[in-house]
Write a protein that binds this DNA or RNA. Structure first.
Length: 325
DNA sequence: AAGCCGGGGTT
DNA sequence: AACCCAGGCTT
């Protein structure tokens, strides 16, 4: 008997797959603090904190930040130094400054609210395509795609396969999905994509056996083989835990801001003293280097330099003092 | 498109 | 040691 041609894989319709993911989400969704509110302020705080920062690192800081700054007004009226302090250790410290300015814009320009349309949200500094869509959807219920790294990966693997796709097709696919959604399901859908990506369809070690859509996934088979290859190739693990970014300007910027946060409120530190706190081998010949870093931080709203105006001669740098803005 | 911007956890 | 992360902005 001739071997029968391989039957076409049974594929559920686009809509069936969406409904299955939504059903999975109903039972598997993560209980996250920012999912208990639709207050635009609380949503925005979460979304800004979550920019390029893992959920597990935001959770412990989130309630604490909201306790310090419960409303638009509370945040807008607070000294920016307090906001910068409350941001530690989330990183990307300019987000704290931008969030502070966003609160002031909400109070003074938008009458205690935010615009509801993603296109208008996008005009605000610190709100990019992701955050605009997230606020529009999660706070205002707008049926728009919310494309973060998780949603991109899930859509790509699920519908487009292992080949790399252009941002353009991804957006088209995401838009098509949202348009096919039952009324009012956009927030759940977007969160379902993120949850699947965060807990099952992970970047490095996806748990395909636990995936509700495995049977209809364009990448499942490919992924299984890839995992087997990785398992074979994996060698003994050694934890090294060396200091990352040693010597990079990014590394020292972080240390500088950390030291400024440690200062008592309103106090400043001499540039040279700051140098020794930030770098154990600091020498006075490095004052210009340190001053450049601090000057950049000042332009970004993360530091204030107290000095005779515009003097950058080496001999003058000894009089420079630095503090939080 | 590429570089820059933190910092902690995972493998 | 590199990789990862509910990105955004500048050049």
């Amino acid at each position: 008997m001739k071997r029968p041609p391989k039957p076409p894989e049974p594929r559920s319709s686009f809509r069936e797959r969406m409904l299955r993911l939504l059903a999975w989400y109903q039972g598997a969704q993560r209980d996250l603090p920012w999912r208990h509110t639709r207050d635009p302020y609380a949503i925005l705080v979460a979304e800004v904190m979550l920019q390029q920062t893992q959920v597990s690192r935001v959770v412990p800081r989130y309630d604490q930040f909201l306790a310090c700054f419960p409303t638009w007004h509370a945040l807008a009226d607070a000294p920016v130094a307090d906001v910068i302090r409350a941001w530690e250790p989330l990183g990307y410290n300019r987000r704290a400054v931008r969030l502070h300015r966003l609160a002031q814009a909400a109070v003074h320009r938008w009458d205690g609210d935010l615009p509801h349309e993603p296109e208008l949200l996008r005009c605000l500094e610190g709100i990019g395509p992701y955050t605009a869509a997230a606020v529009a959807c999660f706070a205002f219920g707008a049926p728009v795609p919310v494309l973060d790294t998780n949603a991109r990966r899930v859509l790509l693997r699920l519908f487009l396969g292992p080949a790399k796709a252009q941002e353009r097709e991804l957006r088209a696919l995401a838009q098509e999905a949202v348009a096919a959604l039952p009324e009012g399901q956009a927030p759940a859908w977007n969160q379902a994509l993120m949850d699947l990506g965060a807990t099952v369809c992970t970047s490095r070690k996806p748990l395909c056996p636990r995936c509700p859509l495995r049977a209809d996934c364009r990448s499942a088979l490919w992924m299984q083989r890839a995992n087997e290859r990785v398992a074979e190739a994996r060698g003994p693990y050694r934890a090294l835990r060396l200091k990352p970014f040693r010597g990079s300007s990014r590394y020292y910027r972080g240390r500088i801001v950390h030291q400024l946060r440690l200062l008592p409120p309103g106090e400043s530190v001499a540039l040279e003293e700051l140098g020794t706190r930030v770098k154990t081998t600091f020498a006075v010949t490095e004052l210009p280097w340190l001053y450049r870093l601090v000057a950049t931080l000042e332009r970004e709203g993360l530091a204030r330099v107290e000095a005779a105006s515009g003097l950058t001669l080496n001999s003058e740098l000894g009089h420079v003092r630095v503090r939080l803005p």
